[in-house]
Design a protein around this nucleic acid. Structure first.
Length: 232
DNA sequence: TGCGTTACGGTTGAC
DNA sequence: TTGTCAACCGTAACG
């Protein structure tokens, strides 16, 4: 099937994204819950009904097929409000999915759940131990600077001063290695706030790792150019 | 009327 | 095993 207004390349890319998403209705626990027109949905299993009469599962992403359909219809030049009515998905949701598609090139929902990757890896801890052994009076923030300067960590995964302090206290033993006061402490920021896209990619990879194993390769959306423009 | 934004109640998964 | 936390979700409502 070829869609008007969309060349083969675009359409192929769209479906590649869907394929990478798993796009297996059977594999999606929500898929059969969608009894909406145009969704290819099966029998209603569970879920709530929105104002448009569409079925959704609160807290769970729309099935990939529906997400794909939204993008397809938009590519055909159909207005978001019409897509919303046709698929019985709230216009806010349509707007969100299209905005994400335009930004990342992916129809995939974000990774739900999980927590950020650990920054205090064994390598980092061992390096901190070395620094502390060489200079027992070193400040936590100095250690942090050294981790950056020596390339052990980058600005996105360097532990916070308080984390370093905790490592010194817990893993090195406060009695043996008295921890100097943290002050003066240079300004710092927390990891997820200034580099959300890295985390997005990390979680997305993690979440889809299982399903992507038997796919040629997962679709990795291009980094949004302003991913952290308003993240702070 | 169309649409971007946001509060809300919910789910998820690592720690 | 259980609870917490911080990410995500879609809907509904507002401007």
């Amino acid at each position: 099937m070829m869609l008007g207004g969309m060349d083969g390349k675009e359409y192929g890319a769209l479906h590649a994204a869907a394929a990478a998403a798993g796009y297996a209705m059977e594999a999606d626990p929500n898929a059969s819950a969608m009894g909406n027109p145009g969704m290819g949905g099966g029998a209603q299993q569970y879920g709530e009904v929105n104002q448009l009469g569409g079925v959704f599962v609160n807290g769970r992403p729309l099935p990939n097929a529906v997400r794909l359909r939204i993008v397809e219809l938009a590519q055909l030049g159909i207005r978001p409000c019409d897509i919303s009515r046709q698929l019985r998905v709230s216009h806010g949701c349509v707007s969100k999915i299209l905005a994400r598609y335009h930004e990342t090139g992916s129809i995939l929902p974000g990774a739900i759940g999980g927590s950020k990757p650990r920054v205090t890896t064994p390598k980092v801890v061992s390096y901190i131990k070395q620094l502390k052994a060489k200079d027992p009076g070193i400040f936590a923030w100095e250690i942090r600077d050294r981790l950056l300067a020596d390339g052990v960590c980058d600005k996105y995964n360097v532990p916070s001063v308080s984390s370093i302090s905790r490592i010194l206290r817990n893993k090195l033993g406060g009695a043996l290695y008295p921890v100097p006061p943290l002050y003066p402490v240079p300004p710092q920021r927390c990891w997820p706030l200034h580099q959300p896209y890295d985390y997005y990619v990390y979680l997305q990879g993690r979440q889809h790792a299982a399903s992507a194993q038997h796919l040629p390769h997962a679709h990795v959306p291009p980094p949004p150019h302003h991913a952290h423009a308003h993240a702070l």
